[in-house]
Structures are given as structure tokens and as C-alpha cells.
Amino acid sequence: MTDELDLLREANPVSADTGPWRDRPLNARAELLLRQLPSRDRGRRTVRRVVWSLEAAAAATVLALALTVSGTPSSAVAASRPLPLVAHASRADVSLAEIVRRARTAAEESPGKSERGSHFQSWAPSMKSGEDPVTLPRESLTRWNADGSGFALEVATDPRHPGRPVIEDGPPPRTVHEGKVLSEERYPPGINSANQDYFEDPPAGASALRAYLAVWSPGADRDPAELLSAVQSFLTVWTPGPRQRADIVTLLSGIEGIRPAGTVADRFGREGQGFRFTSAPASRYLIVLDPDDGRVLDIEETITKADPEYRVKAGDVMSYTAYIS
């Protein structure tokens, strides 16, 4: 409780000199400060990984162990760490500046709208001192309607068959390949979609989008690694339309130190253009973009320094998120 009280006191959404406050709503500044509280303790981490619920992590681990000891020839894959994506430079590579131009052109021709909800597959290790990580990729599909109703489906995938979605989008969604359903929730009309980060509609314009991301990920407006992390999180909540895609790739193009990596096939075999960014002290990111419209296909993080305590080597994948829609 002490930590939460310290955070609240530090934010000071209603100061002592603002007069009686019990009978009036918080002003815009106070609302902003309160929204930032959940992310105040995230900090800058050497290893950024997707945070699972305890139930989801336990279910995925049980499934991984079951596959590992099943005795099938390919069962060892269940507990293995995914290999990093490989990029190949060539004369056909498309520059980041050109991708920004194409994305802007696509947005002008058909602005479209961003949709609340996302479909993605992600992986991150369960880090325990002195133990090999055993974690399965998970796939998530979330959709929201205008009246606030919606659903969320999360499935632990079968790593013996990588490179294919296990959830088919549609009314209703369904699992189409082997996998363990971790959670399935349906929400009635209301404000349930406001119970997650980035619940407000994203603004138009790269600068406005950066400020919007910084509300939920403090530091995204000044730290490249925080900005990249914020974009990664935002894309697990929203499916951006052409305008937001152009804004996102514009923000990425402004990251100092981002470098072209070459053509790369992402986790689902989609050909994209890869760009690398190294963040102190030990993280390297590979961002895979659709060269035609700037859509983010995949964001992968690898570690640049070995950590024997957690049995990771330089070059090991620490997380990835592949965006299906």
C-alpha cells in the first residue's frame, strides 16, 4: 500500500491550494496525472516482456510441459526459444523515408479510421533465476463495438506448428488450429473498452500521436526505447487505419540510430522491410514494416549481452509481437 500512496502523493492530482474538491470533477490535468499512475512504475527495463496474467502463464507453462514430455519427435520444440528473424540486404531494399512517403500517399488516397481491437501473436520467456525458460507463444484477438460491447480471446499456440494463426476472426471468433484457450471473455454494452490503456481514440498527426502515447507510457515523448515500447503496446489495443499507420512510421523514422537491416520474412512468412535499433544497455530491436503502406508487421527484441543467471546468450530472442491485423 505504501508504494501506491507514494505514487498518488507524487502525482498530487488535487493540490491543497485548489480549494474544496469533494463536490466537483477532476480537471483535465488531474485526470491526466491519474491516468499516468499505472505506468509510473514501469521504468526503463533491460528486458521488456509481455506481462501475462498468472492464470494465462500457468496454463501456457502446463501446455508447454505436456508437449515437451509427450514423446513426439518434435516435442523438444515446445520448450525451445524462437530463433531470431534474419534480414538480407539487397539493392531492392526500400528506405524508411520512402516507406513514410508511401504511407502518407496511401493515407491521402484513403484516410480510413483506426479500429479499437487487435489480433496479434506474441512471445516472451518466463524468466526465473537458474531455470531454462518454458513459455509458449500466445495469440490474442480483441474486438469492440460502438456500444462498448466486445470480446477477448487468448490462446496458447502449439509451437510444433509455428508460422500460422490459430484464431480465425469473425462473428464469432474460433480457434482453428491446435492450441490451449487461456481466456475467453465477452462484454455487454457499456464502457468495458475503457478499462484498458489507450481507450481514447488516437489523434491525427505524428506529434499529437507521440503526446497521446506519452500519456500511457511516460518517456515516449523523449526516449526512443520508450517510444518503441509504446508503439508496440498501442498496436495490441488498436488496429490503425492508413492515417495512423503513416503517423506511426513517421515517428519511427525520427528515432535516432534506427538503421536499415534488409528484407525479412516475419513470423508469418510475410515479406517486409527490416530496421534495427539498439537501446542501452543490452537490447536490440528489429522492426519489420510493410514497404507499401508502412504497416508494422513484427517487432522483435534480442539481447546483446549474455546473462548466465537467466540462461540467456547474446543474440537470444527476448520477445516478439507479430501483428496479424
Score class of each variant (00 low, 15 high):
residue 3 D to N: 03
residue 10 E to N: 14
residue 12 N to E: 10
residue 13 P to E: 04
residue 14 V to S: 02
residue 15 S to H: 08
residue 15 S to F: 00
residue 16 A to D: 13
residue 16 A to N: 09
residue 19 G to Y: 01
residue 20 P to F: 10
residue 21 W to Y: 13
residue 22 R to W: 10
residue 22 R to Y: 04
residue 24 R to M: 00
residue 32 L to E: 10
residue 32 L to C: 03
residue 37 L to V: 13
residue 41 D to S: 14
residue 48 R to P: 12
residue 48 R to Y: 12
residue 49 R to M: 11
residue 53 S to A: 08
residue 54 L to W: 11
residue 55 E to S: 14
residue 55 E to W: 12
residue 57 A to T: 06
residue 58 A to D: 08
residue 62 V to R: 13
residue 72 T to P: 01
residue 73 P to F: 07
residue 73 P to R: 00
residue 77 V to M: 11
residue 77 V to H: 06
residue 79 A to E: 02
residue 79 A to Y: 04
residue 84 P to E: 02
residue 87 A to G: 02
residue 96 L to T: 01
residue 96 L to N: 00
residue 98 E to C: 04
residue 100 V to F: 05
residue 100 V to H: 03
residue 105 T to D: 09
residue 107 A to W: 02
residue 110 S to E: 12
residue 110 S to V: 09
residue 113 K to L: 13
residue 115 E to R: 15
residue 117 G to A: 03
residue 117 G to S: 02
residue 117 G to E: 03
residue 118 S to D: 02
residue 122 S to V: 15
residue 127 M to Q: 14
residue 128 K to Q: 14
residue 131 E to Y: 07
residue 134 V to Q: 09
residue 135 T to D: 08
residue 135 T to L: 06
residue 138 R to K: 09
residue 138 R to W: 10
residue 141 L to E: 01
residue 142 T to G: 01
residue 143 R to T: 14
residue 143 R to H: 10
residue 145 N to L: 10
residue 145 N to V: 05
residue 146 A to C: 00
residue 152 A to Y: 12
residue 155 V to N: 05
residue 156 A to Q: 06
residue 160 R to E: 08
residue 160 R to N: 02
residue 160 R to Q: 09
residue 161 H to N: 12
residue 161 H to G: 08
residue 165 P to A: 15
residue 165 P to D: 11
residue 166 V to L: 08
residue 170 G to C: 04
residue 171 P to I: 15
residue 176 V to G: 01
residue 177 H to I: 08
residue 178 E to H: 14
residue 184 E to V: 00
residue 187 Y to I: 05
residue 192 N to L: 09
residue 193 S to R: 15
residue 193 S to G: 15
residue 197 D to C: 06
residue 207 S to T: 13
residue 209 L to M: 08
residue 209 L to I: 00
residue 210 R to C: 10
residue 210 R to A: 11
residue 210 R to M: 11
residue 214 A to H: 06
residue 215 V to I: 08
residue 217 S to C: 10
residue 218 P to F: 00
residue 220 A to V: 05
residue 222 R to A: 12
residue 222 R to I: 10
residue 223 D to H: 07
residue 227 L to R: 02
residue 228 L to S: 04
residue 229 S to K: 09
residue 234 F to Y: 10
residue 235 L to S: 01
residue 237 V to A: 08
residue 238 W to Q: 04
residue 243 R to I: 07
residue 244 Q to N: 14
residue 246 A to Q: 00
residue 250 T to H: 04
residue 255 I to A: 05
residue 256 E to P: 06
residue 260 P to K: 07
residue 260 P to W: 00
residue 262 G to M: 05
residue 267 R to K: 11
residue 275 F to N: 04
residue 277 F to T: 03
residue 279 S to D: 14
residue 280 A to H: 10
residue 281 P to H: 03
residue 285 Y to V: 02
residue 285 Y to P: 02
residue 288 V to G: 04
residue 290 D to L: 05
residue 292 D to I: 13
residue 293 D to S: 01
residue 296 V to C: 02
residue 300 E to K: 07
residue 300 E to L: 06
residue 300 E to N: 04
residue 305 K to A: 15
residue 305 K to H: 13
residue 308 P to S: 03
residue 312 V to R: 11
residue 312 V to P: 00
residue 313 K to R: 14
residue 317 V to T: 15
residue 320 Y to M: 06
residue 320 Y to K: 07
residue 322 A to T: 13
residue 324 I to Q: 01
